[in-house]
């Protein structure tokens, strides 16, 4: 069955081009339902542009992350990776272009978008330090609209999944940076969001923590979430991502194994 899909930046278009093109191909993906056809799922950015002052951070950027996909967007510091996440998370507005979450525009339908996303930014102060890890997760589970019992169940499951059970009764102030990092990313999984926006998930983690985190992120994609991860370096993410992109000079490029910009090569685990 021929389906339309997009790949960003084929090599023939040359470096600096970030516009996607449409191709027809045999793809082992299920046909979208009619409602999905009206409201495409996952993350979509088209012609996204954002400046701060006179500096243009994102310039006409296109990106798409489909449900069930773990995409990694790599780029140097200041390239605009986190700005991209923040736009999808509705905390920064684009100057031009559009960003959609499950078909909902981040500007027109911000409330709908916020119901669908789980976000984790690099900021270890984004949790309440004088609450325990468990109390933090329960608080945010309730703000996501989960009932008390559902919150308890989900929090227990996330603590287990990210190997945080033992330290869950400690104040966040008493946790290590890596433990806080895992807690912040556990929070992004509350309410089983359809789209996850994760900033530098491996930052500050030891080897065991990295393995736990990668397993958690893969599990999120496996349950059908569109997972967008941004990081300054690919490191261990490379082997686990379904799609790899590079953000440079304000545009998104696919990433080639030899480090040059090129056609998408990273396919992640089977």
């Amino acid at each position: 069955m021929a389906l339309e899909f997009e790949i960003p930046y084929p090599p023939s278009l040359g470096r600096g081009c970030s516009r996607p093109i449409s191709l027809s191909a045999q793809m082992p993906i299920s046909r979208p339902s009619s409602s999905q056809a009206r409201k495409p799922s996952g993350l979509y950015a088209g012609g996204l542009t954002r400046s701060f002052g006179t500096r243009t951070i994102l310039n006409n950027v296109d990106l798409e992350v489909r449900p069930g996909t773990m995409a990694v967007l790599e780029g140097p510091n200041g390239a605009g990776k986190t700005t991209m996440l923040r736009i999808f998370a509705t905390v920064v507005r684009p100057d031009a272009g559009e960003a959609k979450v499950d078909g909902y525009d981040v500007i027109q339908n911000g409330a709908r978008v916020r119901e669908r996303i789980g976000a984790a930014f690099v900021n270890e102060r984004s949790i309440y330090w004088r609450l325990t890890g468990r109390e933090n997760l329960r608080l945010f589970a309730r703000t996501r609209g989960l009932s008390s019992s559902a919150a308890r169940t989900q929090v227990d499951a996330l603590l287990e999944e990210l190997d945080l059970v033992e330290i869950s009764s400690r104040w966040v102030a008493d946790l290590s940076a890596g433990q806080r990092q895992r807690l912040i990313i556990a929070r992004a999984g509350l309410g089983a969001p359809t789209c996850m926006l994760i900033d530098e998930p491996l930052r500050g983690l030891d080897e065991a923590g990295i393995a736990t985190m990668l397993s958690f992120l893969r599990a999120q994609a496996a349950r059908g979430a569109a997972v967008l991860i941004v990081a300054p370096k690919l490191d261990e993410l490379q082997a686990h991502a379904d799609e790899l992109y590079r953000l440079r000079d304000g545009g998104v490029h696919t990433w080639a194994e030899d480090g040059s910009d090129g056609l998408l090569l990273g396919t992640g685990p089977a």
């Binding site: 998370a89 509705t90 905390v91 409330a111 916020r114 119901e115 996303i117 976000a119 930014f121 900021n123 270890e124 102060r125 984004s126 949790i127 309440y128 330090w129 945010f140 703000t143 996501r144 609209g145 929070r187």
Partner: peptide
């Protein structure tokens, strides 16, 4: 100042 405002703004609360 503590850094929790931005994440609160991503929550589905008015």
């Amino acid at each position: 100042v503590e850094g929790t405002l931005e994440i609160l703004a991503t929550q589905p609360i008015s």
